[in-house]
Write a protein that binds this DNA or RNA. Structure first.
Length: 274
DNA sequence: AAATGATCCTGAGAGC
DNA sequence: TGCTCTCAGGATCATT
């Protein structure tokens, strides 16, 4: 479920209730995630003031004075706000308890992660998982020339270069497909072969698609953090190619094609994208 | 060094 | 109804 817009929507949903509040208790019900959740983690943060909720790529960063909790939602994770008395459901693995609110990390596939970065190890940006990430797609550092530099000389297909996260973060499978459609670029194009003009188009498309999704995230996933979350709404309204194999392109009626790149599905219009 | 493939795990949906 | 098969929004790690 979570690509960058969903993670950012989640961040906006939880920040008002978490920032500046004492985390009374962190309870781990299932520690077998992408990596095992450290047994001493609850002791480190329970009773401490949670200062800020940030995001870097698809990582949520919950800051404390003495360190930072990194939360990744993986493929199937969500973080929802529930009442103090609401019972846990299946796959609710971690619980954040504040005086007036409560949050549950739900993740059936358990590809998500919960890690502690101690302040003594330096700023959280130096954490191995964050240190080599590309720039934020909606930040000032993401420019057409940054994208151009990132893909220079690369033989790799542009779709995979976008997905890699070393140039720009947060462009997941759906939005990579949608951005390439919007830019009229074939997903198999060797990244380094794109003309400056087409790189500029792609850059603009990525920003537009993500901003668009974020706006919709605000509406279609508004209850993402306090309800069950209803995926699919974005697709109905916005997806031009994703999961539309065989259906007519909205622009030219040509059937949308599905191919596989690095074991991930890619959808594109063979006529609009060259 | 860059690119590729296997891998972690559960659930939903299709087809029979 | 129930079985088997395929696929899924991520991304790390080991291998070529």
């Amino acid at each position: 479920m979570p690509e960058l817009p969903e993670v950012e929507t989640t961040r906006r949903g939880i920040a008002p209730f978490m920032s500046g509040h004492v985390l009374r208790q962190l309870i781990v019900h299932e520690s077998r995630m992408r990596w095992p959740i450290a047994a001493d983690l609850p002791g480190r943060v329970s009773g401490q003031v949670l200062r800020r909720c940030d995001r870097r790529g698809k990582y949520l960063l919950l800051h404390f004075d003495h360190g930072c909790l990194l939360v990744h939602l993986g493929m199937s994770g969500s973080l929802r706000r529930v009442s103090l008395s609401e019972p846990r459901r299946k796959h609710d693995h971690v619980e954040w308890c504040f005086d007036e609110s409560r949050f549950l990390l739900h993740d059936p596939r358990r590809f998500g992660a919960l890690l502690w970065h101690d302040a003594q190890q330096g700023p959280v940006e130096t954490h191995p998982l964050l240190a080599h990430l590309g720039v934020e797609p909606l930040g000032e550092a993401f420019t057409a020339s940054h994208l151009q530099r990132g893909i220079r000389g690369k033989q790799q297909a542009i779709k995979l270069a976008l997905l890699g996260g070393q140039i720009v973060v947060g462009v997941g499978n759906i939005y990579a497909c949608e951005s390439l459609f919007r830019a009229g670029i074939h997903p198999l194009t060797p990244a380094g072969r794109l003309s400056t003009r087409r790189v500029e188009r792609l850059h603009a498309a990525i920003q537009a698609v993500l901003e668009n999704a974020l706006d919709s995230g605000g509406s279609t996933l508004r209850d993402y953090v306090n309800a069950s979350g209803q995926p699919g709404a974005y697709f109905d309204a916005h997806a031009k190619v994703y999961d539309r194999a065989g259906q007519p392109c909205h622009t030219c009626q040509t059937p949308i094609r599905r191919i596989v790149q690095a074991q991930r599905a890619t959808y594109y219009c063979p006529k609009c994208q060259r």
